[in-house]
Simulated assay, not measured.
Amino acid sequence: MREAGAGSFDLVEQHANQARLLGPADVRRLAGELGIRPTKRLGQNFVHDSNTVRRIVGAAELTAEDVVLEVGPGLGSLTLALLPEAAGVVAVEIDPVLAERLPRTAAEFAPELCDRLRVLPADALRVRAADFAEPRPTALVANLPYNVAVPVVLHLLAELPSLRTGLVMVQSEVADRLAAKPGGRTYGVPSVKAAWYADVRRAGPVPRNVFWPVPNVDSGLVAFSRVDPPSAAPRAQVFAAVDAAFAQRRKTLRAALSGWAGSAARAEEVLRAAGVDPAARGEQLTVADFARVAEAAGEPAS
């Protein structure tokens, strides 16, 4: 979903009759059939409210040419709403039982659209671009397992340059961190690294009662649009500087980056060359600032 000026959580439902969606009774029936009890280890909370998934898909602003990547499709609530809106859906599911059942669910609920679905039984943290057939995914739309949401988003953005847009449901605090801007308490490593790849923004809350089981945390939506990297500096070098700066976020950058640069004196030299105050702290720097620091440092210290 989008904030004001880029759509709304309350967008008009579209294509409602093109696929029958899962309701609470369907979710419980499928879970019972498969003997599934949602686990915290896999971050499983299944969405059972059809209006919610329709609104999410509408807010994702997909085109008929998009190939959607869905991570953790679970029982298929969101998958069924995605099928009418895109050229194809690639669902990455780590649970083999759920991965095996999803195509049959699509055939049952959306028989005219089920050929658009491809299920990839895999860990989203381990997939590579080569695992995806052409055309590769262009949009990420997912109810992400909360325990791995940040690494999954960063891994997929790095591995799949084809991903141009996305809309993901995550824990509300994680949404805040991903979309945070410099200067705030929630701004940190996830904020900076996500900004390397994309313009990231909060896109609205999701009520707890649309999930089964009801989670004990609030949820939120995060939208992103791909941008070009802020510099030609090696991403690994920039991210190493980011990690070092926030590992000791209460320290000045001169001190926090001393190990990364080789010494405090060298860190100050690099920071001044990059036009960054050595007395500043990591939370004050944009991703472009960190890129300038990495460029000024040149090759990392051995």
Rank of each mutant, 00 (worst) to 15 (best):
G7D: 06
G7L: 06
S8N: 12
S8H: 14
D10S: 15
D10P: 09
D26F: 11
R29Y: 14
L30R: 14
L30I: 15
L30F: 12
L30W: 13
A31E: 09
A31P: 11
G32Y: 03
G35P: 11
G35F: 10
I36G: 10
I36D: 07
L42V: 08
G43W: 10
Q44R: 10
F46V: 07
V47K: 11
V47N: 13
D49P: 02
R55N: 06
V57A: 15
L62G: 10
D66P: 08
V67H: 07
L69C: 13
L69D: 10
V71N: 05
V71D: 03
E85N: 13
E85C: 14
V89K: 07
A91P: 12
I94H: 02
L98A: 01
E100F: 08
R101P: 02
P103I: 00
A107Y: 01
A107R: 15
E108Y: 06
A110Q: 05
P111Q: 02
E112N: 07
R116N: 08
R118E: 10
P121F: 01
A124N: 06
D131K: 05
A133R: 14
E134I: 08
R136F: 04
P137D: 03
T138R: 12
L140S: 03
V141D: 10
A142R: 11
N143S: 08
L144V: 07
Y146G: 05
N147F: 04
V152P: 08
V152R: 05
V152H: 09
V153Q: 06
H155W: 12
A158F: 12
L160G: 02
P161E: 13
S162F: 11
R164Q: 15
M169E: 10
Q171R: 05
Q171N: 08
E173S: 13
E173P: 14
V174M: 01
D176T: 14
R177A: 05
L178W: 09
A179P: 10
K181A: 15
Y187M: 03
Y187V: 01
V189L: 12
P190M: 05
V192T: 03
V192H: 03
A195E: 07
A195M: 11
W196H: 15
W196D: 11
D199R: 15
V200N: 04
P205H: 09
R208D: 12
R208E: 13
N216H: 15
V217G: 03
V217M: 11
G220E: 03
L221N: 02
V222K: 00
A223M: 09
R226K: 12
R226T: 12
D228A: 15
P230E: 08
R235D: 04
Q237L: 13
A240Y: 02
A240R: 13
D243W: 03
A245Y: 01
A245M: 00
K251D: 01
A255H: 05
S258K: 01
S258Q: 04
W260S: 00
W260N: 02
A261C: 08
A261T: 08
G262P: 04
A267V: 10
E268A: 13
E269M: 12
L271E: 07
R272T: 15
A273I: 06
G275I: 00
G275E: 07
D277L: 07
A280W: 01
R281F: 00
G282H: 03
D289S: 05
F290N: 05
F290E: 01
V293N: 02
A294H: 08
E295M: 08
E295L: 13
G298C: 10
A301V: 14
